[in-house]
Design a protein around this nucleic acid. Structure first.
Lengths: 262, 262
DNA sequence: CGGCAGTTTGATCATGTTCAATCACAGTGG
DNA sequence: CCACTGTGATTGAACATGATCAAACTGCCG
């Protein structure tokens, strides 16, 4: 049984065609800067702040480093030891994992507020790459550990985040194991909408900063199949592809029916 | 686009062919008994005890109820409100989820020490059914919440369990999204071995209490494809099927190569 | 022995992959 | 201004993996 030639990644794009963000000059490692020095990115790690008293926030600030990662650059690389956790404060990130022969599984997409570091492993099992220009906060795991030893609410918050991720992962297992291509794409669109409703106002129009190939590797399909599914949904007036990266959900009810979810 | 007729569950077995346990008379709801009354099942919820001081163990005992569930019976039913968490102390349990048309995804198999209840949802998204006769402990979520408010180590333990589950779920997403049938089966056998090494002594012989159909629904395949994969592995002298539910891993190296994992 | 539940094996079929050509759009330079 | 290029998206045709349909087999229990 030789390893099959399926799903081979055909083109590694450093810079996806996402143009309405200021394009950075060097897509290298994330630029880091001490919290007190960084005037361009002052957003706090929202998903952790909620768990802390006002008096503890300064302590969180003191262990926080802020980063800016240009589109296409890598935040963390698969296989490297985990010393920091990350919190995305702005932008879109792709978590992906490679098989030796190049097959890729995208484990998820992160947006504002999402967290990297909920794991028991001591090396990253996935790479995290910026899809758009991304701002993030990082914390040394040791520091975060000490802080959450003193703050039950922070530990509680981390626990809740892990459980939430677990719920999402199980939803994805159902999708990958038992849904058809059409159902996967419909579920994906509804899921993205659900997540963007939290932050954005626009009811029916969603933003897809990732490429069709990224979506395919997330849904366990090929980019051709994803494209064909989009086309079918377009033909049936269920969605409208305004720009490649902007999709309007016209017929919400039928989309839900197509998604196969209860 | 009518829902396709793929993957339809053909036979719902109440009682899988697992005979070397005492067969219970009534495969109904789990029989529960207060901790102090139950002489037949005195095992403690191992995965939680480790996090508690000796002095707190009695408090854990006081909120613990013990259950015995005969093979084929249901511990928790998909869609019911979550009021209890469960810890398996003996036996094997299948977590599964249904799509409206009967397609089934098995989310995982639980053995001694495994835990149910790491979720943020307030209804179960899956059913838990006993594959073999099963002993379990349950705790009211309120009680567990109170107990872990006072015990940082318990909350830490719950967090670690959630992160561990998350790592496993991501591994499964890679399997379901990008591995071939042969790779899925090989990965599954290696995974079961890994888990059974913790408790059992036998190095190379693993126990598969679940049916081929269960395995298929766990791996996103059909039972026929699973059976064919087993047959191929047998022909190539990589495994030996001693009984249907007992498999020896003869050529560990080649099995690992076939699993596609790095 | 027959019946039942689960497994194995074979033949045919379909979904989604692979290979390949074309399209769309933006950036670049003559 | 317009060819030229590059990246990603779309569409078509042929193909393959795994699903479906069907039959035979195994072990167990009454």
């Amino acid at each position: 049984m030789p390893a099959p030639d399926l799903y081979r990644v055909r083109a590694k794009r450093g810079q996806p065609g996402w143009k309405n963000t200021a394009v950075s000059s060097d897509p290298g490692a994330p630029r880091s800067c001490a919290a007190q020095d960084c005037h361009s990115c002052e957003v706090r790690p929202l998903s952790l702040c909620g768990a802390l008293e006002e008096s503890e926030l300064s302590r969180l600030d003191s262990i926080t480093r802020r980063h800016h990662t240009p589109a296409g650059a890598t935040l963390v690389r698969e296989g490297t030891p985990i010393t920091f956790a990350y919190n995305i404060t702005e932008g879109a990130v792709r978590l992906s994992r490679l098989l030796q022969d190049g097959r890729r599984q995208v484990m998820g997409f992160l947006f504002t507020g999402d967290f990297i570091g909920l794991t028991r492993r001591n090396s990253f099992t996935f790479s995290a790459e910026a899809i758009t220009a991304t701002d993030s906060c990082s914390f040394a795991l040791d520091d975060l550990e000490k802080l959450s030893d003193d703050n039950p609410h922070l530990r509680q918050r981390l626990y809740e985040m892990a459980c939430g991720e677990l719920d999402a992962a199980q939803e994805q297992m159902l999708l990958l194991g038992r849904k058809t291509a059409q159902e996967r794409v419909a579920s994906f669109l509804l899921d993205v909408r659900q997540r963007q409703l939290r932050h954005d106002s626009d009811e029916s129009c969603i933003t897809l900063p990732m490429t069709r190939g990224d979506i395919a590797d997330y849904l366990g399909l090929t980019l051709e199949t994803v494209s064909r599914s989009f086309s079918r949904l377009r033909q049936e007036q269920i969605i409208e592809v305004r720009e490649t990266y902007r999709v309007a959900l016209l017929d919400f009810t039928r989309l839900q029916a197509l998604s196969g979810s209860s």
